[in-house]
Design a protein around this nucleic acid. Sequence first.
RNA 1: UCCUCCAUAGCUCAGUUGGUUAGAGCAUCUGACUGUUAAUCAGAGGGUCCGAGGUUCAAGUCCUCGUGGGGGAGCCA
Length: 479
Amino acid sequence: MKRTEIKAVLQQGDVGAKVKVMGWVRTKRIGKNVAFIALNDGSTIKNVQVVVDTTGDFVKLLENVYTGAALSVEGNLVESLGSGQKVEIHAEKIDLLGKADPNEYPLQPKKHSLEFLREKAHLRFRTNTFSAIARIRHAMIFAVHKFFNDKGFYNIHTPIITGSDAEGAGEMFQVTTLDLSNPPKDDEGNLNFKEDFFGKASNLTVSGQLEAELAALALGKVYTFGPTFRAENSNTTRHLAEFWMIEPEMAFNDINDDMDLAEEMLKYVIRYALDNCMDDLEFLSKRQQDEEKNKKADERSMELIEKLNFVLENPFARITYTEAIQILRNSKPNKKKRFQFVIEGWGADLQSEHERYLVEKHFKTPVILTDYPKDIKAFYMKQNDDGKTVRAMDVLFPQIGEIIGGSQREEDYDKLYNRMKEMHIPEESMWWYLETRKFGSVPHAGFGLGFERLILFLTGMGNIRDVIPFPRTPQNLEF
RNA sequence: UCCUCCAUAGCUCAGUUGGUUAGAGCAUCUGACUGUUAAUCAGAGGGUCCGAGGUUCAAGUCCUCGUGGGGGAGCCA
């Protein structure tokens, strides 16, 4: 008999029909006449209840059925006598596919801490929380590709190994095949990368942006969605050494088009989650509320689904950096010196506390900040006529802060070249980037979206290590 | 990298001012009961109190160092 997934059984199973399901046991309740097994196969967060006759031959088999065991069950799909579910399966045939010794299997039908489950990352997919996150993560990957495809963007695979060390987005992981216990040296005693695999120093990419720009300046609209690596010693709930980034890049577009795209895209994928992941979102909402029930009322998060709808229904606030500084200088926490970093004047970089004030207290909606001082932003951003600011735009979200960083790019060869000189970017390794400004240069813009930060927001989780299956962070490379 | 907090049963945690035999819930086992919903009830087993050193008549509790982890900051997505 052919297996049916539990999602299909629960949604469109014919009552009275015979079905076969396979899955992992979540709980077993054994009684005098019948036992109940909650079975889950990952197709949905919902379990199917298997009812087993304990007066017959199943008794012996049930002795080996514990939380975590894998079963194949054949039986009749019937209307449930109990109140917790509409239908259930009356088992006629049960095969124990894989045992799970309860003395060794670490997951129990109870609440585990996220820290504990992080150390059991190989098994945490089997919990409601982590399977829900995995399903939502998939849906968001799909929604991102669908969004860009439907808008006529082309997906570009930018390189993962790069010879450029000037992307300027952070510390890089070096890639080498040299013998590190006895590395070759040149005449001056420095490492001789000519003997390395590529004949030069090579690293893992910190951004696909520069290559995406090359493609955009021929194909019009492109995006990347790939792994990104940062060797920063960052130990926070929103940084990973290996994460996934989405980077659209559009020719013939300015910073306003860039903001429109960012807002439209975020709303599109949030809508997609609400339309396609409601079971998982509802579970995660309850999880978050349960976790925060000991907090004071004003410290609790907005209910997850309400929060997502709120973002959909309200336009993002769009203000310049200069306006933000004005608001912050006049804000209560600044006047009362409640900020750890008091805003003194124009030019200061905004700290997380300032971004959170703007988003969570002042505007109470996502905020797009533009036109930052050029000295705190990257070399490739388009310089404004004031000589002080660049056309950068950061999208700030409640709780997680910067979810998107983007800009209009400097398309003028001389301005770009001079800025690279000022910022000590080695132009000889960037000749190919500069050439695009020599041949048919046009205004263009793009941004980078941290995929895991998006998932943090959508799931209400608090730690980025819980929204990627196998997180890579400093001093942590298990699994 | 900096600041800060934590480490007690398989899991989640309590453990008073340093004081006699270290507790609870869940899980496991035994029994009862039962169309149950993380079932319920009664009982049992289960501990190198993270590691090393120190103070003390006496350390789970205090001190030092180490290890592991959480949270915050910076860097950023």
